[in-house]
Design a protein around this nucleic acid. Structure first.
Length: 431
RNA sequence: GUGGACGUAGCUCAGUUGGUUAGAGCGCCGGGUUGUGGCCCCGGAGGUCGGGGGUUCGAGUCCCCUCGUUCACCCCA
């Protein structure tokens, strides 16, 4: 295969997840799901494709995601479908479509799976990436904002992660945000001479975005820009204060950054991000916020909601960067090796018996010699090798070989299964 | 979409001012042990030097194009 240029490769920005990394990811997802379920969140799986309009309406026509990053296609029936670029809109759509409100409020749902955005890949950014996220739909209570925020924090703690910062902000509601944006716009007009071209464009199209310009000149020009905190209406201010208070009560450290902007249009009130050190330019591992008008925008009744989503690849980058290895790869319990002269059928019988007892077992499928089989067992990191040879079979025994200790002993076939169980229990107890 | 860096065996990389059979380590396969892994020794397989074009007597080495990877911008998980 190496003499020909490979014809097919994973599409740009996508990748294959192969063991042991696949097992590590599986482990992380299990812990994440456990943290969610611990808090009463239930799993929801929505389709990977949705009607294109769902995303246009919810995320916002002017956002980069909708304007240039969606994988959109027309199916044979002429319907415009899009590979989901994010998880919240589909969940809210499902909530409305399936009348989940009838099952009690709030509906606490979590999801897990691939998302698609057509961007230029770079560290921590892929065209197909994976998120685990949760939505609490139906409650305006700041307690639930704090709960949503706390989930990522709990997961990071479980994985032993450090070196991150939680940044929170409030972007107000449909009453106070527009007047703030107008105020900011007129401020930006005043300083437009000092802004870069990019920021001048942003001042027109999405004034809040000027805050994330990295150029020193722009940052200086924005020093005296009006802050949203002072412009929030009393209700929003109260909501934000309460949310922060609840975070304090939960013992979660955070920083309020009134200039933090998030990319989706549907956010209201609370927004937040967990940013990590040492991950390169894409350092937001988890983020989210409140979206109190989203349900109505999708044609449903006014329904408040809050949620977050967390990037699995970025989480994994952080885990690796910090040298953590919370989920080592799978280990095989038993390798059944056939020594020369042994009936391979008997080897198969033994392997099958072991597997039927719920103990993982593998054997040789390359018709190799014993030496090569031992090597294979070592490579599979087997806890134990059962050597089945002519001598053993004549005596009605098998040889047990402990690869870690380099010890071996004989066991009669009748005692094999119980000896096996004892051995495995022993190694597992000793670690 | 824009910019930079890089593309030599499965992996990590060497390859002198262009010089003619393209190397190493690791990995893989086999042997050294008539039935035994990890260490050691020996052998083997595996590369049209990303692809195409050009310059040259001669190009992995120079030039152009192209594809890919990667980092950054934009933006976001």
């Amino acid at each position: 295969m190496s003499d020909l240029a490979l014809k097919y490769k994973a599409p740009r920005g996508t990748s294959d997840l192969v063991y042991p990394e696949s097992e590590k990811v599986e482990g992380i997802l299990r812990v994440a799901a456990a943290e969610l379920e611990l808090r009463g969140y239930r799993r929801i799986s929505t389709p990977i494709i949705e009607n294109t309009d769902l995303f246009r309406r919810s995320i916002g026509e002017a956002t980069d995601i909708v304007a240039k990053e969606m994988y959109t296609f027309e199916d044979q029936g002429g319907e415009s479908l899009t590979l989901r670029p994010e998880g919240t809109a589909p969940v809210v759509r499902a909530y409305l479509e399936r009348s989940l409100h009838a099952r009690g409020l709030p509906q606490k749902l979590y999801y897990l799976g691939p998302m698609f955005r057509r961007e230029r890949p770079q560290a921590g950014r892929y065209r197909q990436f994976h998120q685990i996220g949760a939505e609490a739909i139906g409650s305006p209570d700041p307690f639930i904002d704090a709960e949503i925020i706390s989930i990522s924090e709990a997961l990071f703690a479980r994985l032993g992660l450090r070196g991150y910062e939680l940044v929170v902000n409030s972007v107000g509601c449909r009453e106070c945000r527009p007047s703030y944006v107008r105020m900011l716009s007129s401020f930006l007009e005043g300083v437009s001479q000092q802004l870069c071209d990019e920021c001048r464009r942003r001042s027109r199209e999405n004034p809040l975005r000027t805050f994330d310009c990295k150029k020193e000149s722009c940052r200086q020009a924005l020093e005296s820009a009006p802050a949203i905190g002072e412009q929030l209406c009393p209700a929003c201010r109260e909501h934000f204060t309460a949310t922060c208070g609840h975070l304090d009560r939960l013992g979660i450290r955070f920083r309020v950054d009134e200039r933090m902007v998030r990319g989706l249009d549907y956010y209201t009130n609370t927004t937040f991000e967990f940013q990590f050190e040492g991950l390169g330019a894409q350092n937001t591992v988890s983020g989210g916020g409140r979206y109190d008008y989203l349900a109505e925008q999708l044609g449903g009744p006014a329904t408040p909601g809050v949620g977050f989503s967390l990037g699995i690849e970025r989480l994994l980058m952080a885990v690796d960067a910090q040298g953590l290895d919370p989920f080592p790869g799978l280990r095989l319990d038993v390798f059944v090796a056939g020594a020369p002269g042994a009936d391979r059928g008997r080897v198969l019988d033994i392997m099958t018996a072991v597997r039927n007892a719920g103990i993982s077992a593998d054997s040789d499928f390359m018709e190799r010699g014993l030496k090569a089989q031992m090597k294979q067992a070592d490579r599979l990191d087997a806890r134990l090798v059962l050597i089945v040879g002519k001598d053993e079979l004549e005596r009605g025994e098998v040889t047990f070989r402990d690869l870690d200790q380099s010890r071996q002993w004989q066991v009669s076939l009748s005692m094999m299964m119980s000896e096996l169980r004892d051995f495995l229990e022993g190694v597992k107890r000793d670690g």
